[in-house]
Structure formats: C-alpha cells, structure tokens
C-alpha cells in the first residue's frame, strides 16, 4: 500500500511542486538528502542494531565530494558523487569488518568511537581539511554544464529526489529479499542463522556497507548543495540526529526515513527561532516521548489511525511497537 500508492503520490507532488510554487525547493532538497543516512540507520535497526556514529560516513561523502570538485577544473558533480559513494563504501567496509563482530552496546559505542576519532582528525589536519572552518566547495558543473545558482539548485532538487526514490525503492526490495529477512532474523536468533549455514556477520556487513553508502551519498548531496563541508558533519550530535529522525519517522518501514526527515526539517526550520538554544534539549525530550509512548514512530501512528478508522489493512511493523517476546532467548553470547 505504501509502496504502490503513497510513494507514487509523494513523488508526483514532489515533481510538480517546484514548477508550481517557489520557496520550497531548497528546504526539500535538504529533506531528500538527509533522508538517505536515516534510511541507512533504519536498515541497521532491522537487525536490532543502532549506530551512534554514522555521521562519519556522512562526512566521508561530503569531504570526498569536496576534494574531488576542488581538484578537477570545473568540478563535475557526477564524478564527485561517484567518488563520494566509492569512498563511503570503502570506509563502510573497513569500519564494518570490525564493528559487525559486535552487537547492541558494543556496536553502538564502537561506531561512536570511530566517528569521534574521525571528527577530531578532520579538525586537526587543518592543512588538508581546512580545520573547523571547513572545506569550501565551489559550485560544480552538472554533466559539463556550468550553471547559475538558481538553475543549479533546481537541477540538484531533482537529482536528490531521483536518488532518494531509487534508494527507498532499492532498500524496500532488499528488505523483502531472503537476505533482508535474514538481516531481520539477526535480531532474534543468530545461533539459528549459523545453523542454517549462513554468517550473521556477513549479512550484517552487507547491510552496514549499504548504510554507509546511503550516509555518504546524503553527505555528498548536502555538501554540494550548501557549498561547504565541516567537521560538524561527523560530530556525534549529527549521528544522534540520524537516529532521532529514524525513530521519529518509524523504523518499521523505509518510509519512516522520508516522513521523519520531512517533519524534522520542517520543525528545525520553523522552530529554530523559538527554541534555538534548546534545540538539542527539545530533540532529546521528543525522542524520549516517542520511545516511551509511540515506539513505532510517525508511520506507525498513521497506521494505527488508519487501523482505528477501519480503513485498509494494517501494515506490519516488524520492529516498532512490540514488547520483546523472547528477550531471554536473545543472543547475548556474541557480544561478550
């Protein structure tokens, strides 16, 4: 239902919108771009794993795109994005090989530790990265075309939208595949996965690399849109935001990424004036409220309302909203 009706409708509206009105495209470009790392977090959450460090891949993508654009004359965006994807996949592989050996606390904290190290390296190596001022990125060409700012942003809007839709659909299909279902099985019984002849670590590594790829692509898009990459892109607060948006949107469905990203950006843009100093505090409080009272997020709440109204069949929410049914049966041995 979500894939067959909601996605096409959203895409259609998104395609028509910039032609009908102006003023939304800058906002929405960021929504599309920032939904990508959130999608990566949702993917990992299917296996019950949280990463507090995915901003490192976001920053990897952003800085790689920046370096490439600065290095080649004119700076071609397609090459920059391809390089960003390549770099984040490699980074995802390198970090992933280590972190997929661990679960839960260790998984979350190792990701955090790696990202903190990366953050401080970005700050320290000033001659390469520009330090805490960041790396300024000139406006690249798109397929060899140099563009005016408005024209560039217009094209970037559609580019980000197209990439997001492809990724949403791709992850959706992946989660429905045998491998995707094995990923979900990691959450409940790794011993059985081993005894089916499969490696939970390898399955999680695949998901981890995909999530790094998504975060890197998102970071590259944000960087080329804003014309800058700063160490703050790798900061733990940024990683926390990704997790926050995933929980806000709902982790049971890839649409959570889009819904969460939209609502989050909207609140951020409109509420900063009022809660500027207490932004992080507000996020923390909302996160607490969602986990304690509406653990399936926005998509889950929408489903609940629809179920309540008796319209349509309730989409299953595999990870959200359920009390753990077999916590004692859960694998704990692996992590220790």
């Amino acid at each position: 239902m979500l894939m067959r009706i909601v996605l096409p409708v959203v895409v259609l509206v998104a395609i028509v919108l910039p032609l009908a009105t102006s003023g939304w495209d800058a906002f929405l470009t960021l929504v599309w771009a920032k939904a990508l790392p959130v999608l990566g977090i949702i993917l990992l959450l299917q296996a019950g794993q949280v990463s507090f460090g995915h901003a490192m891949f976001f920053a990897t993508g952003a800085y790689t795109a920046g370096f490439v654009i600065r290095a080649i004359p004119g700076g071609e965006i397609v090459i920059a994005l391809a390089a960003a994807i390549g770099a984040s996949v490699v980074a995802g592989l390198l970090v992933g090989v280590f972190v997929v050996r661990y679960r839960y606390i260790f998984f979350a904290m190792f990701n955090l530790a790696f990202s903190m190290v990366f953050y401080s390296l970005l700050e320290k190596f000033i001659h390469i990265t520009g330090g805490s001022d960041g790396l300024s990125i000139p406006r690249p060409e798109i397929l060899g075309q140099a563009m005016e700012r408005s024209e560039y942003e217009f094209v970037l809007y559609y580019l980000a939208l197209a990439l997001l839709v492809i990724c949403l659909y791709g992850v959706h299909r992946f989660l429905d595949s045998p491998l995707g279902h094995t990923l979900k099985a990691i959450k409940t019984n790794e011993t059985r996965i081993e005894y089916l002849g499969l490696s939970p670590r390898r399955v999680l590594l695949i998901a981890y690399i995909i999530s790094a790829f998504l975060a890197g692509l998102g970071g590259a898009l944000v960087a080329v849109f804003q014309g800058i990459a700063t160490p703050e892109y790798a900061y733990w607060v940024r990683s926390g935001e990704f997790v926050f948006v995933a929980i806000l949107g709902g982790t049971g469905n890839v649409f959570g990424a889009l819904a969460g990203s939209f609502v989050y950006e909207y609140i951020r843009v409109t509420a900063t004036a009022y809660v500027g100093d207490t932004w992080q505090l507000t996020l923390g409080l909302v996160l607490l409220v969602i986990i304690l009272f509406a653990p399936s997020g926005l998509v889950g709440v929408l489903n609940d309302i629809r179920g309540y109204l008796g319209k349509g069949r309730r989409e299953p929410t595999p990870s959200g909203g359920k009390q753990p049914s077999g916590k004692t049966e859960k694998q704990r041995g692996e992590e220790q």
Binding site: L45, G48, Q49, V50, F52, Y104, I105, A108, V237, G240, V243, I247, D277, T278, W279, Q280, L281, L283, G284, L285, L287, L288, I291, L292, P295, Q323, P324, K327, K330
Partner: peptide, 22 residues
C-alpha cells in the same frame, strides 16, 4: 525501560545525554 529491547534502552540514555548536554 528495563523490560524494553536493548536498542531502545540505548536510545533512551542517548536522549538523556542530548538533554543534559544542552
């Protein structure tokens, strides 16, 4: 949250971290 899933427990303390930091 003692009876909740592990990743949710992590998230709760993370949320408190964000709040206290602010």
């Amino acid at each position: 949250i003692y009876v909740r899933e592990e990743y949710l427990q992590l998230l709760v303390t993370f949320a408190i971290f964000m709040i206290l930091d602010n």
